[in-house]
């Protein structure tokens, strides 16, 4: 399946679009484009962080109590898994730069595997919350937090929790699809020292998903 070192024999401009002068220019443009996209992602998640900050500072005690209902152990395990997937992704970029086809495929596969495990653990956490009724504001049904004016403030915490982790999970799914696409292409032997842009840009995206989680984990699980 793995086309060893095919990059050395491929036609020089196979992946260079006609409107770029040099491969270097195309690489720089793609990378800048990806960073601009990451900027939009930072702002996209940024909105949720604003909502988080507003409700946490208005009701610190609610957040403190509600965070106890999350499973810190599972959150920490998921953090380690995502960090590991970031390592394998960074390594995949290294492999593609060096033309190591086997290493590239292995690293990408490990990354996808870690992402799926992350989602599995997330699913376990979600199902616990579902069974205990620890859901978002309108569905929250557990009488153990401060209740004000006919609704439960803890529901607000879980609204934020589900919005943030849910959006993050959607990004994980998109990341799996993107890495899967890169994996397919690497099985075909598309990448080598002078063409690894998709590995690099998808890698950047994956690291950003990791970055978001680095902030989500302490802000949601470790209040206390």
């Amino acid at each position: 399946m793995i086309a060893e070192a095919s990059s050395a024999t491929q036609a020089p401009s196979r992946f260079r679009a006609h409107h770029f002068e040099t491969a270097e220019q195309q690489y720089a443009a793609s990378k800048l484009g990806m960073w601009l996209f990451l900027v939009t992602e930072v702002l996209f998640f940024g909105g949720l962080f604003v909502a988080y900050a507003v409700f946490r500072t208005l009701h610190p005690e609610v957040f403190m109590n509600s965070a106890q209902l999350l499973d810190t152990r599972l959150g920490a395990i998921n953090t380690v898994i995502l960090l590991f997937s970031s390592l394998t992704m960074a390594w995949a970029v290294r492999c593609s730069q060096l033309g190591q086809q086997r290493g590239l495929v292995i690293c990408l596969s490990l990354t996808i595997f870690a992402a799926i495990v992350f989602l599995g653990i997330k699913g376990v956490e979600y199902s616990h919350k579902w069974h205990e009724g620890h859901l978002w504001a309108s569905q929250y049904s557990s009488g153990d937090a401060a209740s004000v004016g006919g609704f439960d403030r803890a529901g607000t915490f879980f609204s934020i929790y589900f919005a943030m982790t849910g959006l993050h999970a959607i990004h994980i799914v998109a990341g799996i699809a993107a890495i899967g696409w890169v994996l397919m292409r690497s099985l075909r032997g598309d990448f080598g020292p002078n063409y690894f842009t998709p590995v690099d840009t998808v890698g950047l995206y994956w690291h950003l998903v990791d970055l978001v989680w680095i902030f989500l984990f302490p802000l949601l699980y470790l209040i206390g």
Partner: peptide, 23 residues
């Protein structure tokens, strides 16, 4: 820089209407 904030706003609005997340 600005458009993604509209994106998340509308996502929250849709979630508000569909599921009642109460933000």
């Amino acid at each position: 820089l600005a458009t993604p904030v509209l994106g998340i706003t509308l996502m929250l609005l849709i979630a508000e209407r569909v599921a009642g997340i109460g933000i």
